[in-house]
């Protein structure tokens, strides 16, 4: 009941929050397909460094992006405790490799503040805004910007 009540309310957003490179991020729950454990990807040649490779997701070949590296942060530490958030972005399915999923947030649209001007250009391009919750600053990602851009892939 609760879920359906929120789903129809355009002012309420549900966000999946996660941690990587010591920072908190979140993305809209509607773009998340599933969350799964790490599995060893096959390397892709000529790929940008943040592309870890591809894995098999029930028959589909899905690229795995190291989110921290994608955002220009320290690369993720390799442990099999890392998780992959499988997200559907513009008709593509990609896996975002992060340290841990922390929470599901329910925030009103007014709870999302615009990205502060201080942020660097690269960071700001990837963010839609920030959410402050329990004295934590959670960055709302613009998933469409995360995809490898055409010039990245061609290399």
């Amino acid at each position: 009941m609760r879920a359906s009540g929120f789903a129809t309310d355009p002012d309420i957003r549900e966000l999946v929050a996660f941690r990587t490179a010591g920072q908190d991020f979140c993305i809209d729950i509607l773009s998340v397909r599933e969350i799964r454990g790490w599995s060893r990807p096959a390397l892709l040649p000529h790929a940008p460094t943040y592309v870890q490779g591809v894995i098999n997701l029930r028959g589909a070949v899905v690229p795995i992006l190291d989110l921290a590296r994608r955002l220009g942060l320290e690369p993720i530490e390799d442990t099999d405790r890392n998780v992959i958030i499988v997200a559907a972005i513009q008709n593509r399915t990609v896996g975002l490799l992060v340290e841990a999923v922390t929470d599901i947030l329910t925030v009103p649209a007014s709870g999302v503040q615009p990205t502060p001007d201080l942020a660097s250009e690269t960071t700001r391009n990837m963010l839609r805004g920030v959410v402050v919750q329990d004295s934590r600053l959670i960055r709302l990602l613009d998933v469409a910007q995360l995809l490898p851009q055409a010039d990245d892939v061609a290399a």
């Binding site: 790929a47 490779g53 591809v54 070949v61």
Partner: peptide
């Protein structure tokens, strides 16, 4: 044969990908 174009893009030197018996991907 599993295309890479749908979720990623074309890669020079790579025709496509496939899934092996152990469930891992091979190019």
């Amino acid at each position: 044969i599993k295309g890479l174009e749908a979720n990623y893009g074309q890669i020079p030197g790579i025709a496509a990908a496939t899934v092996l018996g152990d469930g891992s991907v091979a190019l």
